[in-house]
Design a protein around this nucleic acid. Structure first.
Length: 825
DNA sequence: CTAGGGTTAG
């Protein structure tokens, strides 16, 4: 007590303050807090004296009306004076006064007052409150404040009772607020004053530093300081080691340190199991689960949930359900998390009816769905393409008093983007922002990817820049999207430049960037460049993925180097990877294209032998192969197989078959297949119509083709340029130039871009029929369209003019050709 | 220490 009053003595403080007012006033407002005790009355302002008087006479200080009216008039100095005095006389009242100020007037007094209260709380071992007071202080001070706060504690409070405890709590609060450097500064000060830090403080610091090697310094210091370790200490180290991908070391650490001094800790085991599940070693996790029993530990709900989660992610739902039963048998009740994990497992497998069954079970248990439950359901519906159901669930959530979080919004955004409704997605982003949610790097990446997929790379880059402005930093996913957009929309060179800048500026290079580039090179037939990138991957020690190899194989197939493509199939196995449905389908497609149907079936048999499930694309390729051999009945049978297997044929499957029947001059069956598409809710594409139109032109009456074409136009069905050129060519060939002319004009009016090929197609056919007058008309239109001639079409026309004896036109054309440099002389 | 969101290939 004496010591305490000594520090509070106004004499020393006043002396100092007389010289230091300018700087000190910042921290201490004005001289002594306890001045009221000692100094003459005129130095103590009236409200302070009045409140202190009331405090000594009345029991219920704060129920007193006149005190209540005085409080709002107090300034910071006066608050310090009251707290300082009350603190000496009546700590409880001081604390009450402090809370009253904070809760009802939103003021916390100066740092001095806060530290006074801190010491009083520490003295009464009200540690949680002490932590709150300090954490609030640190929120306001921010990082880098440790030196000034330490100085205050050192100069003004060192001799106070419980001062050691406040120091420790200050370090702890800094650590919890993730101001690690400040925490270390305070710890250093404490070491200097020989104040022992508590294990809680050490653990918190250890936790914050667990992903760095400094973790060991803290750990060594804990040992050196002789502070008794808590059960938590070791599990933090274990988690840290796992986080640094040192799983072996983590296990070794557990074996060395657990169960020797104290009972081993469940948390350590849980941490290890969770980490091993995450990297796919579920069997290892299971063995830890069993080991717990040997150590005399009973797994808790976390242990079960972690293992159930691991099983669900691996798709072993049966085992996951068994373990859930086990859990109940051992008297550990499955909780909301357990059911959410199971529901997610079924969702991942696309088994939404089972997921709903799980949720029903949960409801029967009297557990209420939470935001995560709803998010899983929304995700499941969206995944199945039913966004509308997703939005209905959003409504339900809101009516249940849940607010959608950023993850639920991301799920909805992502499925809108996948459907190509990026505009809708952007609208949803605004809705999200208006509810106060902050889109994060994932949300932005989804949108950027959506925009890039739609070819709106400029907009994507704008969003990318906006993200930077909001200090949300793009990650490799974001860059994937931009690279993808550039490679699809821009030139290959542009994409390569962006790719090079990515690989140069990023320490962690991403296999997906390489895969995107390799695929692009493969697609345009630049296998050499693709292989060069593959060599770079190997040189840099990056692990290639199955996509890398599939893209390379695709490249060799595109360049008709099938033997090499097969060699690369061997490389997949050499790298410990497994060929996928894409691998085999790519090869099968290439063999089919070259007419090697036997080879195609050989690959298919290998695929079956390796138990790789064929997809609808695989079946479509086989159908294409069968069609090539005119095995029409078999291809129709395969279509039935697809329906039966639930491997739904898509629009391309039908287009393949329709094309095949058109070629076989069976237009009836072709149209029947078209109707079947509609029955299966498959929207025929412009390609479907081109195939049918061409079929009618080649096999049937041109009038049928015309009628079909107009009916499509009447229904406002989207058609491509090919539909027009198909009909135009047919009319040219049959000699109805008038009709061809009309269609050509229509095509131009629709805004399609017309090239020399389109004119050449018409002119070629007209020339064949010696319809040179019409040729001249088309030539004129073409030239006025700004299209330049090429040598090939000129010679065709010259020959035609010569045949019909139109010398004038022949010379005119020759003159034009010389002007364009199409003739040597 | 457990549950919910984003990437490349035919």
């Amino acid at each position: 007590m004496l010591n305490r009053t000594y520090q509070w003595r106004p004499i020393r403080f006043r002396l100092k303050s007389q010289f230091l007012i300018p700087t000190f006033s910042l921290l201490f407002t004005k001289p002594s807090v306890s001045a009221a005790n000692i100094t003459s009355d005129d130095e103590t302002s009236d409200p302070v004296r009045e409140i202190l008087n009331k405090a000594s006479t009345s029991k219920d200080l704060f129920g007193n009306h006149s005190v209540r009216t005085l409080i709002p008039t107090l300034n910071s100095l006066q608050v310090d004076q009251i707290i300082g005095n009350l603190g000496l006389e009546d700590p409880d009242s001081a604390i009450d006064f402090f809370y009253l100020l904070r809760n009802e007037y939103g003021s916390c007094g100066s740092r001095v007052s806060q530290f006074v209260i801190g010491h009083l709380l520490a003295g009464k071992r009200r540690l949680k409150e002490l932590r709150t007071v300090l954490e609030q202080m640190l929120q306001e001070e921010g990082s880098g404040s440790a030196p000034s706060l330490s100085e205050l504690l050192e100069n003004r409070f060192r001799a106070w009772d419980s001062n050691d405890l406040v120091w420790d709590m200050l370090a702890f609060a800094y650590s919890r607020s993730e101001m690690v450097h400040d925490a270390l500064f305070v710890l250093a000060k404490m070491k200097y004053f020989k104040i022992q830090a508590s294990i809680l403080t050490y653990n918190s610091l250890l936790y914050n530093l667990r992903h760095t090697h400094i973790m060991w310094d803290v750990y060594e210091e804990i040992k050196a300081s002789g502070t008794p370790q808590s059960a938590q200490t070791n599990s933090i180290v274990i988690d840290g080691l796992c986080g640094q991908s040192l799983l072996q070391e983590a296990v070794a650490f557990l074996q060395e340190n657990e169960g020797k001094e104290s009972k081993p800790c469940i948390v350590s085991f849980n941490t290890l199991m969770s980490r091993f599940c995450k990297v796919g070693y579920i069997d290892v996790a299971k063995s830890f689960f069993c080991m717990m029993f040997k150590y005399g530990l009973l797994p808790d709900a976390y242990s079960y949930n972690i293992l159930i989660h691991g099983l669900c992610i691996a798709g072993s739902m049966e085992e996951a359900l068994e373990l859930t039963d086990d859990m109940e048998r051992h008297g550990v009740q499955p909780d909301v998390v357990t059911y959410n994990i199971l529901a997610k497992g079924f969702r991942l497998l696309g088994m939404m009816s089972w997921a709903r069954k799980i949720i029903r079970q949960m409801l029967l248990k009297g557990l209420n769905p939470d935001v995560v439950t709803y998010t899983i359901l929304i995700c499941g519906h969206c995944q199945a393409g039913n966004i509308e159901e997703g939005f209905m669930l959003q409504e339900e959530m809101l009516s249940q008093g849940f607010q959608l979080n950023d993850i639920a919004y991301s799920v909805l955004l992502s499925s809108l983007c996948k459907r190509g409704q990026v505009g809708e997605a952007l609208r949803l982003l605004h809705e999200m922002e208006s509810t106060g949610l902050k889109p994060d790097v994932i949300t932005y990446s989804i949108l950027i990817h959506g925009l890039c997929k739609q070819g709106e790379v400029q907009e994507a880059i704008q969003l990318y820049n906006k993200m930077w402005l909001k200090r949300i930093f793009p990650n490799s996913f974001t860059h994937n999207a931009i690279l993808l957009g550039l490679s699809e929309k821009g030139t290959l060179l542009e994409a390569r430049m962006f790719f090079d800048s990515l690989t140069k500026s990023n320490l962690m290079e991403n296999i997906v960037w390489f895969n995107i580039m390799i695929y692009r090179y493969a697609k345009v037939g630049k296998v050499r460049e693709a292989v060069q990138l593959y060599e770079q991957i190997i040189e840099k020690g990056i692990t290639p993925s199955i996509v890398t190899f599939n893209s390379l194989i695709y490249g060799f197939c595109k360049s008709r180097k099938l033997a090499e493509a097969r060699t690369w199939l061997g490389m997949i196995k050499a790298h410990g990877l497994v060929p996928t449905d894409v691998t085999y389908t790519t090869l099968m497609n290439a063999l089919c294209e070259t007419g090697n149907i036997r080879g195609m079936f050989e690959v298919f048999r290998e695929m079956e032998a390796r138990a790789v499930e064929p997809t609808n694309i695989t079946y479509t390729v086989i159908i294409k192969g069968l069609c090539k051999q005119q095995r029409l009945q078999e291809s129709l049978q395969l279509l039935e197989v697809m329906h039966a297997k639930g491997s739904s044929p898509d629009e391309i499957t039908y287009n393949t078959l329709i094309h095949c029947f058109c070629k076989a001059r069976d237009m009836g069956k072709a149209f029947q297949l078209h109707n079947e598409m509609l029955l299966h809710n498959l929207q025929p594409s412009p390609v479907t119509y081109n195939i049918l139109l061409n079929g009618l032109c080649v096999n049937g009456d041109l009038n049928d083709a015309d009628r079909f074409f107009s009916s499509l136009q009447d229904q406002n069905i989207r058609l491509t340029k090919v539909a027009y050129t198909t009909l135009i060519k047919a009319h040219c060939a049959k000699g109805d130039v008038c009709k061809a002319d009309t269609l050509f004009r229509q095509m131009v009016e629709k805004g399609f871009e017309i090239s020399i090929t389109d004119y050449s197609a018409v002119i070629n056919r007209l020339c064949k029929k010696n319809l040179t007058i019409k040729v001249k008309v088309f030539l004129h239109v073409m030239l006025s369209d700004g299209i330049t001639l090429d040598q090939q079409i000129c010679f065709v026309m010259l020959n035609a003019f010569r045949r019909v004896g139109d010398l004038t036109s022949e010379f005119e054309l020759l003159a034009k050709m010389i002007k364009c440099g199409l003739l040597p002389d």
